[in-house]
Design a protein around this nucleic acid. Structure first.
Length: 564
RNA sequence: GCGCCCGUAGCUCAGUGGAUUAGAGCGUCUGACUACGGAUCAGAAGGCCGCAGGUUCGAAUCUUGCCGGGCGCGCCA
C-alpha cells in the first residue's frame, strides 16, 4: 500500500523485461514474467541502491556469458528509454550484476509515504484475506503460566499482529485442556489440601500437584464456600473441587496473559467438544472412510498411509479415546469453521504429534498443508551466569507473573522475541532488568522517547510543528540521514518477510538497527538548529523514525513511550 | 537405532544462494557534549562460518557423509 520500494522494484523489473523483450532473449525463456526478476538491496553504496543478478541467473538457460547478457539487456533498456521515476543510472558490475542508481526522489517519496500512512505504514494486503487460525500457549490448566508459556505467548501474539498487518484474517485461539485425567488430579490435589487446612490428617500423595498455588486455591474454596463444603457428599465435593480449581486456574492464566498484553479471540474448551460428541463422530467418519482397524482390543488409525512411520491408536483397549483422537476432532472443528490455514505453536516435546495429527486430517480428506506447526524451542533462564533451575513437579518454577514482576512486560516481550523460534533461548534476567545500553529494549524505546523529547523541545521554541509535513526534504543530504531513510524504506518488506517466514525476531532486529541509526545521527547532527528549513526537514525525518519505531514496537507487543 | 532442530568472534546470537572486507550486542581496550535526554555516540581488537566431499558462474546458505549438542520416538496429555 505505501511501499515505495515496491514501486522501485516494479520500475526496475519492467525495465529489465523490456530490455529482454527488445533484445530477443525473452522469447527463448518461455514462461517468464517480471516477478521472476529478483531485485535486491545492495550492501555497498558503490553498487548503487538496488541490483539484479538476473544476467547470472539466465546465463545457464541462454547459454551466454552473464556479463554479455547484462550488456545486451542494458543496451536495449537504453534504446527503449522507458519513463523512469526513480532510476537515474544503470551500471554493469562484477560478474554481471546490473546495478541501479536511484535519484533522491525515492527517498523523499518514502518519507512522504510514512507521513501520510502514519500508523498504517508497513501494512499490506499480501495475505489477501486468507483466514488463519493461530493457536498458541494452550497450557494445561493445572498450574500457573511458566516462562515457556511466556515465550509462546510473546511469539504467538506478535505473529498474529504481523500476519494481520500483512493482510491475513487472523483469529487467535487458546485450547483449554479441561477434559483429561489431569483435571481429576488437580481437583483431588486441591481437595486434599482443603482437608489438610481443616486440620485432618492427610498424607499428600506423590502424584498430586505439589505447588503452593494448590493450597491457595484450597484456602479460597474454604473461605468462600466453607459451609456448602461441609454439607457435601464425597462425590459432590470431588466434583466441586474439579470445577472450582479449573475455573480458578483458568482465571489466573487469563490474568497473567492479560498482564503480559496477550489476549485471545477464542478460548476453546476441549470438554465441550467431547461432550458434543465430536470425538466419537470423527472416529465414525474415519471408520467409514476405511482408515480405522481393530487390533489388540484397540482401534487404530492408518496414519502410515499418510506418511507416518507407524499407525496410531485412536481408542484404547479400555474404551477411552487417546489425545490424538481428540486432537483430530479439534482440528477438524477448526477447519469446519472456515479457516484456510491452521497454525499451531507447539513445544519441541510435541514434535512427535505433528505427523499423526496431520495424517488424521488427511485421512478425513483435508490437505496436509492445511496444518502448519511451529515448534518453539525451550528457553533457559540465566541469572548472574547461573542457570535458574525449573522443575514443575517439585513446584519450583519461574512463572510468567514472576517474570513480569522481575523485568517488566516490555523487556520480557523483547527478550522472548529476539531469537529465532527454533533456537534455544538463553534469557539473561540480569540484562533484561538493566536500564542501560546493554539492554536492547531500552535502547529502542530510548530512541522513540528521545524523538518525542525533540518535538517537545521544538514546540517550546515556538517551531510550528504543523509545517513539518510540508518541509522541503531536499535539505536532507547527510549520509546519516540517507541511511536512515533507506532503512525506513525497507520496513514494509521486513514486515512481509517476517510474516512469510514466521519470524518475529526479524522485526526485533530491525527495530534495534533503526534505533541505532537514529542514535548515531542524533549524536553527529543537530535536529533543531539555526537553519529553519533544515530543522523542518530533520523534524520530518525524526517524526518518520518515530512512526516506524512505534509501528514495529506495536507489532512486537512492546510499548513506545514518549518519555522514560 | 530412527526423526526433527542447532553448531558462525571469548559469550549470546543475526545473516540461509549473490559481489574485495561474513554482521550486531555483551565482554575487553581507546576516545566524545558549557548545544535538542550520556539509558547516547565514535573507534580498536577479536572468525579455517563444526570437519570433509558434491552441485553452482557464485556456498555460512543447497546436498551427502562424519563429529558435537538439544528434543522427540506410549493404548500419557
Amino acid at each position: 500500500m505505501y511501499n515505495v520500494v515496491d514501486g522501485v522494484r516494479r520500475e526496475i523489473q519492467s525495465g529489465i523485461i523490456a530490455g529482454l523483450a527488445r533484445s530477443g532473449i525473452l522469447e527463448v525463456l518461455g514462461d517468464f514474467t517480471e516477478n521472476d526478476i529478483p531485485v535486491e538491496y545492495t550492501r555497498e553504496k558503490a553498487h548503487g541502491d538496488f541490483a539484479t543478478p538476473i544476467a547470472l541467473v539466465l546465463a545457464g538457460k541462454v547459454k551466454r556469458k552473464p556479463r554479455d547478457i547484462a550488456e545486451t539487456i542494458v543496451e536495449h533498456m537504453e534504446t527503449g528509454k522507458e519513463k523512469t521515476r526513480y532510476v537515474q543510472r544503470v551500471e554493469i558490475a562484477g560478474p554481471g550484476f546490473i546495478n541501479f542508481f536511484l535519484g533522491r526522489r525515492w527517498l523523499e517519496d518514502v518519507l512522504r509515504a510514512i507521513m501520510e500512512a502514519g500508523s498504517t505504514y508497513g501494512r499490506s494486503r499480501m495475505g489477501h484475506g486468507t483466514r488463519i487460525l493461530l493457536e498458541f500457549v494452550s497450557a494445561n490448566p493445572t498450574g500457573p503460566m511458566n516462562i515457556v508459556n511466556a515465550r509462546a505467548a510473546a511469539v504467538g501474539a506478535s505473529l498474529a499482529n504481523i500476519l494481520e498487518a500483512s493482510g491475513y484474517d487472523v483469529s487467535t485461539e487458546y485450547y483449554v485442556n479441561d477434559a483429561g485425567g489431569q483435571i481429576n488430579v488437580l481437583g483431588r490435589s486441591c481437595e486434599l489440601r482443603y482437608l489438610e487446612l481443616k486440620g485432618e490428617d492427610v498424607e499428600f500423595p506423590e502424584w498430586g500437584y505439589q505447588g503452593s498455588y494448590i493450597v491457595d486455591i484450597a484456602r479460597l474454596a474454604m473461605d468462600k464456600h466453607g459451609k456448602e463444603l461441609e454439607a457435601m457428599e464425597t462425590e459432590e465435593r470431588a466434583e466441586f473441587f474439579r470445577d472450582f480449581a479449573l475455573s480458578r486456574m483458568l482465571a489466573d492464566q487469563k490474568t497473567s496473559l492479560s498482564r503480559f498484553g496477550v489476549e485471545f479471540d477464542v478460548w476453546f474448551s476441549e470438554r465441550k467438544l467431547v461432550d458434543a460428541g465430536a470425538v466419537s463422530e470423527v472416529i465414525d467418519i474415519l471408520k467409514q472412510r476405511g482408515m480405522v482397524y481393530q487390533a489388540d482390543d484397540a482401534f487404530w488409525l492408518r496414519t502410515t498411509e499418510c506418511g507416518d512411520e507407524k499407525d496410531r491408536v485412536l481408542v484404547k483397549s479400555d474404551g477411552d479415546y487417546t489425545y490424538l483422537a481428540g486432537d483430530i476432532a479439534y482440528h477438524k472443528n477448526k477447519l469446519e469453521r472456515g479457516f484456510d490455514l491452521l497454525i499451531n505453536i507447539w513445544g519441541p516435546d510435541h514434535h512427535g504429534h505433528v505427523t499423526p495429527t496431520r495424517a488424521g486430517l488427511e485421512a478425513l480428506g483435508y490437505p496436509g498443508s492445511s496444518l502448519e506447526v511451529l515448534l518453539l524451542q525451550f528457553l533457559s533462564l540465566m541469572s548472574r551466569g547461573e542457570r535458574v533451575k525449573m522443575s514443575k513437579r517439585a513446584g519450583e518454577f519461574v512463572t510468567m507473573d514472576d517474570l513480569i514482576d522481575e523485568v517488566g512486560s516490555d523487556a520480557a516481550r523483547y527478550f522472548l522475541l529476539m531469537r529465532n523460534i527454533e533456537s534455544h533461548l538463553e534469557f539473561d534476567l540480569g540484562l533484561a532488568k538493566e536500564h542501560s545500553q546493554a539492554n536492547p529494549v531500552y535502547y529502542i524505546q530510548y530512541a522513540h522517547a528521545r524523538i518525542s523529547s525533540i518535538f517537545r523541545q521544538a514546540e517550546e521554541q515556538g517551531i510550528a510543528l504543523s509545517d513539518v509535513d510540508g518541509s522541503d526534504l531536499s535539505n536532507l543530504a547527510e549520509d546519516a540521514e540517507l541511511d536512515i531513510i533507506r532503512k525506513l524504506a525497507a520496513y514494509p518488506d521486513e514486515v512481509v518477510m517476517s510474516a512469510i517466514e514466521r519470524t518475529p525476531n526479524r522485526l526485533a532486529g530491525y527495530a534495534l538497527d533503526l534505533a541505532g541509526l537514529f542514535h548515531s545521527f542524533y549524536n553527529s547532527h543537530r535536529v533543531i538548529n539555526d537553519d529553519s528549513d533544515l530543522t523542518m526537514a530533520r523534524l520530518a525525518l525524526s517524526g518518520a523514525v518515530r512512526t516506524v519505531l512505534a509501528n514495529v514496537l506495536g507489532l512486537l507487543g512492546i510499548s513506545a513511550p514518549h518519555e522514560m
